[in-house]
Design a protein around this nucleic acid. Structure first.
Length: 422
DNA sequence: TCTGGGGTCCTAGGACCC
DNA sequence: TCTGGGGTCCTAGGACCC
């Protein structure tokens, strides 16, 4: 059997590119996309990067720069990005025998049949061209014999324009050359904490890591880092995961647009997050048995009294019923809430998830459960496309805690009213 | 005044059992 | 004075990813 061959296809400046897709006039301008609640920078156009705007900086810290250089700001518009992402992925699925959608803007492909170096590069260029022409998004392609090396190849394709956006990293000598000039913290799977420890041990480049004794790595760190080192040396440990595995937890958490003190308002927020989480649960045909609620004050103001706590409960029978889950969530909230704090964020997590078709029916209330599930399906049908058209009373009407989205772009591809007119 | 959200995996340690 | 060993399961916490 021939060796594994992976390609990593990654969209360039994805969120920023999505925002310019239907507004060509913005191309060439510095653009940033903000996180939920317009908190901090999560994506930048090439021009914004050149201005020195860093990933993750709080929005208020770049206010000066925004004014000075006419930086265009956007709130994140996940409906838009999700839809563009689907277009990219569908295009890829036409071009490769198997595709693993790894995140909203990247996918691993398995390239079983390709062998010759010239094939690899021209195939990568084909992918680039087609996605550019069909979807309007620029991608880079990295190819190698392991996923971790393919990631690295992709970084190189992005970093060096001379590559034309495609890097073939199947050659052993080329691999070692690139590893030698790559700082260890840029390796996939090596984050802040690990790189600190690695530097202390004198491991500074990706090549250093690849050449470190595997037993030592396992003993001093874990199997995860050992695997990364193997992958860097060309030994494939991570397979392509084509089928999306079923979720193990579902989270809905948000920072508030304004601080919240009263338990009544908090209840509205918790109810809304629970409803949203239940929708996701039903969309995946799952049921939840465990629910966790968390609330907290702000992270950053040292002068403010701080409080953070979570509580969870296990239901007798797994359910996907919004109102049952809401009742449980609000029960937990009563236990958590303390007066005198200004709350900044709350969240709901569903865990211990079951497949809808596999779970034991509740022997004593079969009729009721059928009626409820019909009701839930009806709600989901009405709310499809735009959430919250029909909602539980507990979610509140005023919703003063809702997150800020001051710079939201139209949903060009998912709302009839927002479709661009030519 | 203003600092995101949603996931996964691994490990250590405690509870419990024989 | 002396107080086992091995296994499983669960949970909390920490690390990582985008």
């Amino acid at each position: 059997m021939s060796q594994d061959l992976f390609a990593l296809v990654d969209c360039n400046n994805f969120y920023a590119s999505c925002e310019t897709l239907f507004r060509p006039k913005l191309r060439g301008l510095p653009i940033v996309v903000l996180s939920n609640n317009d908190g901090c920078v999560v994506a930048r156009s090439k021009e914004a990067k050149l201005l020195g705007i860093k990933m993750g900086v709080p929005a208020h810290q770049i206010a000066m720069m925004v004014k000075q250089h006419n930086v265009v700001m956007f709130s994140s518009n996940y409906a838009l990005y999700g839809d563009i992402s689907n277009r990219v992925m569908t295009t890829l699925e036409d071009m490769a025998p198997s595709v693993e959608v790894y995140s909203i803007d990247e996918a691993f492909l398995s390239l079983g049949g390709l062998g010759k170096a010239s094939d690899i590069v021209s195939y990568g260029l084909d992918i680039r061209e087609r996605i550019q022409n069909w979807v309007g998004i620029t991608v880079c392609v990295g190819v190698s014999t392991t996923k971790t090396l393919a990631k690295l190849a992709n970084r190189a394709a992005k970093a060096y324009p001379a590559t034309g956006g495609v890097v073939d990293l199947t050659d052993r000598q080329r691999q070692r050359k690139l590893l030698a000039i790559t700082p260890v913290e840029e390796v996939w799977g090596v984050g802040r904490q690990l790189s600190k420890k690695l530097h202390d041990l004198g491991i500074h480049t990706a090549l250093d890591l690849a050449d470190t004794d595997l037993k030592t790595l396992r003993k001093q760190f874990s199997v995860v880092l050992e695997r990364t080192a193997r992958e860097l040396s060309g030994e494939s440990c991570l397979e392509l995961q084509e089928v999306v595995s079923t979720k193990k937890q579902i989270v809905c958490s948000r920072s508030f647009g304004a601080r919240v003190e009263g338990v009544a308002e908090l209840r509205e927020a918790i109810s809304s997050y629970t409803v949203r989480a239940s929708e996701k649960l039903r969309a995946g045909n799952q049921l939840a048995k465990q629910i966790t609620v968390s609330i907290r004050t702000g992270y950053f103001n040292p002068n403010e009294p701080s409080y953070s706590n979570m509580a969870s409960t296990t239901l007798a029978v797994p359910t996907d019923d919004s109102s049952k889950l809401c009742k449980a969530a609000n029960g937990l909230l009563e236990k958590l809430w303390r007066p005198g704090y200004r709350y900044a964020k709350a969240g709901v997590m569903l865990a211990d998830l079951y497949d809808q078709n596999v779970v034991q029916e509740d022997l004593f209330a079969p009729q009721a459960s059928v009626a409820r599930s019909t009701l839930m399906a009806t709600l989901d049908g009405i709310n499809k496309g735009r959430h919250g058209k029909v909602f539980l009373g507990a979610q509140g009407v005023k919703q003063g805690w809702r997150m800020h989205r001051q710079y939201l772009s139209p949903s060009y591809t998912t709302q009839w009213l927002d479709i661009p007119k030519v």
